[in-house]
Design a protein around this nucleic acid. Structure first.
Length: 158
DNA sequence: GCCAACGTTGGC
DNA sequence: GCCAACGTTGGC
């Protein structure tokens, strides 16, 4: 049994919020539109069903982790890359050789309170988080067990 | 609105 | 293969 991994997913709430995820049928959504190879490789190589997700709101007020989700479907071709009508259409990606992948995620619980970027920066236990590393802009980032535990503890008042 | 930190593109 | 130009991300 492989070790459970943890991730941080960024989303701009004006585009897709945690509330939007929780409002989906079965609270489940396809995480499509990823067009970064490093993130694609995380999806392809490392994400397993059951992995934990910190759901982070970027370009919003507050900037914060607002809830928890999990991986419920492992990587498969992102069909939005094949469709010229889609915003993230990529003619280099073909159905017979897909360049881009997506996973399915399911919302689990909203935090009792948001864990803000500010307090993540100020918390010595969280200074290792890639989120607060200068120049780190990946839309999906790996999170360690220790970081996960601390953020969960802050967000759930435990 | 600014700008640093990238990733991508395309000429050479 | 190099690198300048350009576009995007995302906090401030």
């Amino acid at each position: 049994m492989a070790e459970r991994r943890y991730w941080l997913f960024k989303s701009e709430p004006t585009a897709y919020s945690f509330a939007d995820l929780m409002a989906e049928t079965d609270r489940t959504a396809e995480w499509d539109g990823v067009r970064n190879y490093q993130v694609r490789n995380f999806m392809r190589d490392d994400m397993k069903v059951g992995d934990g997700i910190l759901f982070y709101h970027s370009s919003s007020n507050p900037l914060a982790v607002v809830g928890v989700a999990r991986i419920v479907g492992e990587s498969y071709p992102d069909a939005t890359a094949f469709d010229p009508a889609e915003k993230h259409y990529d003619p280099k990606s073909k159905p017979e050789n897909p360049a881009w992948l997506m996973v399915d995620i399911q919302g689990e619980r909203e935090f009792d309170r948001p864990v803000t970027l500010q307090e993540i920066k100020e918390n010595p236990k969280l200074e290792t988080m890639l989120l607060v590393k200068r120049g780190m802009r990946l839309s999906i980032q790996p999170v360690t067990q220790e970081e996960w535990d601390e953020v969960i503890s802050l967000g759930t008042g435990g």
